[in-house]
């Protein structure tokens, strides 16, 4: 209590870090997470065999597009399913009761959960990005052609991670009031689909209210195949956009969860 009275902020961060590392450790033991990682790797490697269906694009461009698409697809599923599973395994077991009866604020608990899933997604994007990079590099060597400089590739992976973390934050918001992991993960995936379709709301007036929802299409790494990279200012703007929505979704989830009875 003395710690909380004298210096509450570092103590809060310490608790968030503890909950995040516990969440990450649990996530790394999730069979579902490994299944999705395996499916992602297989999809990325399948690009090698599907390269004939490139719709006229260069082979390396197809490999990059297909690989990043596969990482994004499996990553979206991982972001929603892992968040819902980790949240409800605590809540349905005894862990949430043990944690939330200690001097842990509800926002610290949710912040730790979100940070843990974000770390899992960083590992996922990093490892599958590495697999894709190896595949492209091998093909570059075989064809004797250059495709994409490393910084642009890393940027594409970074944008993908930002997008996936937004999906996990949307799922966290649903988790804060939902009563089952199945509902939370399904609703999280549905919200991710809505956020991917956000650009279509520009055209139709009656869907304009959806502009309040994050636009995940902004994070699609279109610069990779086209070669026209984001400016530093544009990238910072995108990171700012991401941070605002992470804070909004996280804040809303914390507000709802604060009043939830365990």
């Amino acid at each position: 209590m003395a710690e909380a009275r004298s210096n509450p902020f570092p103590a809060s961060l310490r608790r968030v870090r503890l909950i995040a590392s516990q969440t990450l450790a649990e996530a790394l033991h999730l069979r579902l997470a490994w299944l999705l990682v395996l499916a992602g790797i297989m999809l990325v490697l399948m690009a090698q065999w599907l390269r004939d269906f490139n719709f006229g694009a260069s082979e390396l461009k197809f490999l990059g597009d297909f690989g990043l698409g596969a990482i994004g697809l499996m990553g979206t599923a991982l972001a929603a399913l892992a968040m819902a599973h980790l949240f409800f395994s605590d809540l349905m077991g005894a862990t949430a009761g043990c944690v939330l009866t200690r001097p842990v604020r509800r926002w610290e608990y949710l912040g730790g959960k979100l940070a843990g899933v974000m770390a899992l997604l960083a590992l996922y994007v990093g490892s599958l990005g590495l697999v894709l990079a190896c595949l492209i590099t091998m093909r570059e060597a075989q064809l004797g052609a250059a495709f994409q400089p490393l910084p642009e590739y890393l940027q594409a992976c970074g944008l993908l991670w930002l997008k996936l973390t937004l999906v996990s934050a949307m799922t966290l918001l649903v988790c804060s009031y939902a009563s089952s992991a199945l509902f939370a993960s399904s609703a999280g995936l549905l919200l991710a689909v809505v956020a991917h379709l956000r650009p279509f709301t520009q055209a139709s007036g009656w869907l304009s209210w959806l502009r309040l929802w994050p636009n995940l299409a902004l994070f699609d790494p279109q610069s990779l195949p086209a070669g026209d990279n984001l400016t530093v200012l544009g990238l910072l703007g995108l990171v700012g956009y991401w941070a605002v929505f992470i804070l909004l979704l996280g804040g809303l989830a914390s507000y709802v969860f604060k009043h939830r009875e365990i």
Binding site: M1, A4, A25, M92, G93, A94, T95, R102, P103
Partner: peptide, 21 residues
Amino acid sequence: SVEARAVVGYLPESSRFAPHQ
């Protein structure tokens, strides 16, 4: 309240914790 939770020890009815830990 945070003050109350700082001095409470609670055993829930169910004892299901993270099995890998």
